[in-house]
Simulated assay, not measured.
Amino acid sequence: MTKRTGRRRILYLAASFFSIIVFLFLVGSAGYVLLSHPKSPLPDHWNPLRDLSVTAPVTPVTSYQLTRALADEALCRGTLSDAGVTFDAMEDLTIDPNCGIVGRGLLSGLTIARVDPVETSCTTTLRLAMWEHHVVQPAARDAFGSGVAKLRHIGSYNCRRMRTAQGENSRWSSHARADSIDIIGVELTDGRNLTLLEDWQGTGSKALFLRHIWRGACDWFRVVLSPDFNHLHADHFHLQGPGWGYCR
């Protein structure tokens, strides 16, 4: 191969590489314009540039939209309001570096189910609303032909350290920042009540329903603990937002 031929080949490869870069840039730009246009033909729940809707169908884009809403308090509150969730704004609570609530509010109603009023964070409420709408309500309709009228809980915020089977841990609980909520059961719209303490064990419809919604909670919370975890959780689900990912 002569020097001239070698230079020609290098120039050809460089030109080809530049052409590919330009092509990808144009395709990306066209895609962005298509996605960001107010009249984009792509449904919002498939569009990563659109905000999360709690009641929209779940798609591969939902996780990204949820992450963005969790990181922006104003967006989080707006998303809850659009879904009809009753989450009355309260001033942030600051006790010390370990205890307090950022994005604080009083939760009393989800998309359908009501809850006894509880102080918690916007992020915990948003995760709970996604679980209620996409897991709990459909599972109840499938299992019992009835929706869930009420989610029963035993609180969210609690300025305390972690509790383990061996006693109190030196680490602070996620409850100390209202990053979790404990659910003890549900009340169906037909009046029936299900509790983890009484209905978790067995193979009947109530136990199967509770295990189904436990597994489904793992799609919306990073740490989910059930009665199978230890005796401290015999009567409730521990649903926690932050964490490395644990479902037991």
Rank of each mutant, 00 (worst) to 15 (best):
50 R>T: 01
52 L>M: 08
60 P>Q: 09
66 L>G: 01
64 Y>N: 03
52 L>C: 05
42 L>T: 11
34 L>C: 03
63 S>H: 14
80 L>F: 09
67 T>A: 09
34 L>T: 06
55 T>E: 15
57 P>S: 11
85 V>Y: 01
34 L>G: 01
46 W>F: 05
62 T>Y: 09
41 P>G: 04
46 W>C: 09
77 R>I: 13
64 Y>M: 04
39 K>L: 13
43 P>A: 02
65 Q>Y: 11
61 V>K: 09
34 L>S: 03
69 A>V: 12
63 S>K: 15
78 G>I: 12
84 G>L: 10
38 P>K: 01
42 L>E: 00
65 Q>D: 10
75 L>K: 12
72 D>C: 05
82 D>Q: 13
82 D>E: 10
67 T>M: 12
41 P>C: 04
85 V>P: 05
74 A>F: 00
51 D>V: 08
85 V>W: 11
41 P>W: 03
75 L>E: 12
60 P>K: 08
76 C>R: 07
63 S>C: 05
61 V>F: 08
44 D>Y: 05
58 V>R: 14
68 R>S: 11
38 P>H: 01
37 H>A: 13
78 G>H: 07
31 G>A: 06
39 K>W: 07
76 C>H: 01
40 S>E: 02
49 L>K: 09
76 C>M: 03
47 N>T: 08
85 V>C: 01
58 V>A: 08
63 S>V: 11
54 V>C: 06
74 A>V: 15
82 D>N: 11
68 R>L: 15
64 Y>E: 08
75 L>M: 12
78 G>L: 11
73 E>G: 08
63 S>A: 15
50 R>M: 09
45 H>K: 05
57 P>E: 12
41 P>V: 06
48 P>C: 07
76 C>D: 09
58 V>F: 03
58 V>C: 08
72 D>H: 14
67 T>W: 00
45 H>C: 07
40 S>V: 00
80 L>R: 03
37 H>T: 10
64 Y>F: 14
72 D>W: 11
33 V>K: 08
43 P>C: 10
85 V>E: 00
66 L>W: 14
35 L>Y: 01
45 H>W: 12
66 L>C: 01
65 Q>S: 14
72 D>F: 12
34 L>P: 05
79 T>P: 10
80 L>N: 14
33 V>Q: 02
39 K>T: 09
44 D>G: 03
77 R>S: 10
55 T>A: 15
51 D>R: 13
58 V>G: 00
72 D>I: 12
54 V>N: 04
52 L>Q: 07
70 L>R: 06
61 V>G: 05
81 S>K: 08
36 S>Y: 02
80 L>G: 02
72 D>M: 11
44 D>T: 02
84 G>Y: 13
48 P>W: 03
31 G>H: 05
34 L>I: 01
50 R>Q: 11
64 Y>A: 12
79 T>V: 15
84 G>R: 13
54 V>M: 08
84 G>T: 02
34 L>H: 08
71 A>M: 10
51 D>Y: 02
84 G>P: 07
67 T>P: 00
70 L>F: 15
33 V>F: 08
42 L>C: 03
44 D>N: 06
71 A>L: 14
45 H>Y: 13
65 Q>M: 07
62 T>M: 06
39 K>G: 05
